[in-house]
Simulated assay, not measured.
Amino acid sequence: MNTLNQEIVAHLFEFWSEIGNQGGFTKTGLGYTSTLAPSNSWPSKVFITDSSKTDFEYIQRSMQNGILPNSFSIGEDEKLIEKLKLIGFKEISRVKAMCLSSNQDHPCGLSDDIVVVGSSKHALEFAAVASKAFGYTIHPSTINALLGHRQFHLYLGMHLGTYASCGMVYFDGDGNSGIHMIGVLPIYRGLGLGKRLTQALLSKAGASRTKKVFLVASKLGEPIYAKLGFETHGSLVSFKV
């Protein structure tokens, strides 16, 4: 695993862990951390913090028995990936770990169609938009628990008087930031709403003078973010039993 891949993955693990801390559903074990959100919703995950200490057979049994969420993630480590497959884990996804390559200028401030999520009503709308955009459940209580937290900044994008997109910035403990949960309702895709919201998130991250900006992207999303200055540094790999 290269150094930047490690940094990006560590940022993402901290992001999930802190969401769970605010919602009261983060737990730690030997070499791993888990988050089990309400009704097994996002972000119900196991993430490996130290593979040298992790008992993967215990992880496997606990996932099979429902003690741990049936999804865990690691950084790009081909030897470990092959070991996990031999044990019986199934690889389910690889998303691209990306980092903003340079300090670039993005429009300052928020346009009229970008709304700061600052109330329980907004949190409900954010959860609804994100759930439809990503195709999995985000519980409103998970979003509501993040309101007012200095490390989380959540936004909704408007289109024709409707909440149509969502996204958030997370500021980690190492002076870096990440843009996350960037989604657009299916009926509004292709209109540039995702790009507009992404630029607003980058403006927020840049205004805070973070050292680096991270994100993870699908294979289809990778070239879109590359045009904004992000470079790919390996993958985040996820498994299930």
Rank of each mutant, 00 (worst) to 15 (best):
M1S: 11
L4Y: 14
L4T: 09
Q6S: 13
Q6I: 01
V9G: 02
H11K: 09
F15W: 12
F15R: 00
E18C: 00
I19N: 03
N21S: 08
Q22S: 08
F25T: 05
L36G: 00
L36C: 08
A37S: 10
K45F: 12
V46H: 05
F47W: 14
D50F: 14
S52R: 15
E57I: 11
Y58A: 10
R61S: 12
Q64H: 12
I67D: 15
N70R: 06
F72R: 01
E76T: 14
E78N: 14
E78L: 14
I81M: 12
I81P: 00
E82Y: 14
K85P: 02
K85H: 11
L86S: 13
F89Y: 15
E91Y: 12
V95I: 15
L100K: 06
L100D: 02
N103I: 00
Q104D: 03
Q104N: 06
G109L: 09
D112M: 07
D113A: 05
S119G: 08
S120E: 13
S120P: 00
A127T: 03
A130L: 09
G135I: 00
Y136M: 07
H139W: 09
S141R: 12
S141E: 14
T142D: 01
N144S: 13
R150C: 07
H153Y: 12
L154F: 09
L154E: 01
G157I: 00
G167I: 00
D174C: 06
D174H: 12
G175T: 02
N176R: 06
N176P: 03
I187T: 15
I187G: 10
G192M: 07
K195W: 07
T198K: 02
T198P: 00
T198G: 04
A200Y: 07
L202V: 06
G206H: 12
S208W: 15
S208N: 15
K211F: 12
F214I: 04
A217T: 04
A226T: 13
A226P: 07
F230P: 00
H233N: 05
G234I: 04
S235W: 12
S235G: 04
V237M: 10
